[in-house]
Simulated assay, not measured.
Amino acid sequence: MTQTWHDVGHTAGLSGLYLKAASKRKISGDTLPTTGLRCSLSVDERNLAAYRKLCLFSNDGRLPPTYPHVMAFTLQLQLLTDKAFPFPLLGLVHLSNRIRVLRPLGGVSRLRFAVSVDNLQPHEKGATFDLRTDAEDGLGLLWSESSRMLCRGMKLEGEPPVAQAPAELEMSELTRWYADSDIGRHYARVCGDYNPIHLSAATAKLFGFPQAIAHGMWSKAVALAHLRGHLPRSGYEVAVDFHKPVRLPSEVILDGSKEAPSGQFRLSGHGGLVHMSGTWRPVD
């Protein structure tokens, strides 16, 4: 697929994007757009401070590895609500997320983001695609992200690809924390992700959830804040698969393998319910 780019001077307003998202309820096609969006965005220091507090990152002079995702969120939303994008945004399921920190994220004030979609694949429950985000500074590519998204009800020919799970390493409990009932609203205010399934039990029930559920990227961020001592300053990748959602409120437990160039971690609830599993490893 040949990728073309549309450069925008600024991102669109969130309220208008959510109105567009609410107005599209049906699948309108079976091919992904080949045009991505690019935009230069500055770090908002007040927002960054609020994000660090919310996700338990210390201020060590570097951006948290998940923070460029927050910076790019509105641009991602702009692409996913464009008329060329065939799937309704509401109802998409975030299956997995991979972030690569290629160089240290210190001293960053402005980044140029590029957002695109590709890799449409059949899935037993519909179809998946990858939402890709790259961030560059003056020296080139600094950070990248790929989120695997599921569109239920989409029919594609072919068999779903089979993923090979890595052999599980020995893990022990690293920490545990309590996810309050209002954490979804706090995350939405800081990060702009106002998906109704995260905001309250009443809005979550409209989409089939008995309680509000935590944002997957909040769970990943807090896990990485606790894994900071396991990760190098740069040159690494952290990939997670999202399993059972974290219902709010609830206590969650983070297990991890020993500190090493590569390792595994798992976020669970009581009774062995697995919410998220992940790996970290060096990248070339």
Rank of each mutant, 00 (worst) to 15 (best):
S23M: 15
G278L: 03
F87D: 10
P249C: 06
V117C: 04
Q76P: 04
V252F: 13
S144Y: 09
P196M: 06
D137W: 08
D284Q: 15
Q164Y: 07
G269H: 08
L111W: 03
D182R: 11
V274R: 15
H270D: 14
D60M: 00
D182F: 04
V117Q: 01
S116P: 00
R98K: 13
G272M: 08
A214K: 13
D137S: 08
Y178H: 15
W5D: 01
T81E: 06
S42I: 02
Q3W: 08
Q264N: 00
K155E: 10
D118W: 00
T35K: 05
G153I: 05
R233D: 10
E159I: 05
D284C: 13
H94C: 04
T66E: 05
L267K: 05
R62W: 00
P64V: 01
L120M: 10
P249F: 04
S116K: 02
L131T: 01
L48M: 02
L14M: 09
Y67G: 06
R132K: 09
H226Q: 11
V162S: 14
A167K: 11
R100W: 05
G271P: 07
E168T: 13
A179G: 05
R148M: 11
W218V: 10
A212W: 08
V252Q: 12
Y178A: 09
L139F: 11
S268I: 05
D60Y: 00
K244F: 10
L95T: 05
A135D: 04
H230N: 10
S172G: 15
K125E: 12
R281H: 08
P64Y: 02
E159L: 11
T11Y: 05
S257K: 07
K155F: 03
D137P: 06
D44I: 00
C39Y: 09
G29S: 03
V70N: 14
R25N: 11
L19F: 12
Y18C: 04
S250K: 09
L32E: 01
Y51P: 04
L254Y: 11
A165C: 09
G138S: 11
T66L: 07
P68T: 12
T34H: 06
R152G: 05
L19T: 12
V252R: 12
A22D: 07
A239P: 12
T4P: 00
G184L: 04
A239C: 14
D137R: 07
I213K: 11
E237G: 12
L111K: 03
A225L: 00
L254I: 08
S42G: 06
P65R: 02
F242Y: 15
E45P: 09
Y18V: 04
D44V: 00
F57I: 00
D30Q: 08
L199T: 07
T175Q: 08
S268T: 09
L102C: 00
E157K: 12
L37W: 01
S200R: 04
A260D: 06
R98P: 02
L92D: 12
P210N: 06
L254P: 08
V238G: 13
V190D: 09
D193V: 10
S268M: 09
L139W: 10
K26M: 13
R103T: 02
T31P: 00
T4R: 10
M217R: 11
D193Q: 11
L79Y: 09
V246R: 06
S181N: 04
A221G: 07
L131I: 02
Q76D: 14
H226F: 09
G192R: 08
E237M: 14
P122E: 01
S58A: 13
V222C: 03
V43T: 01
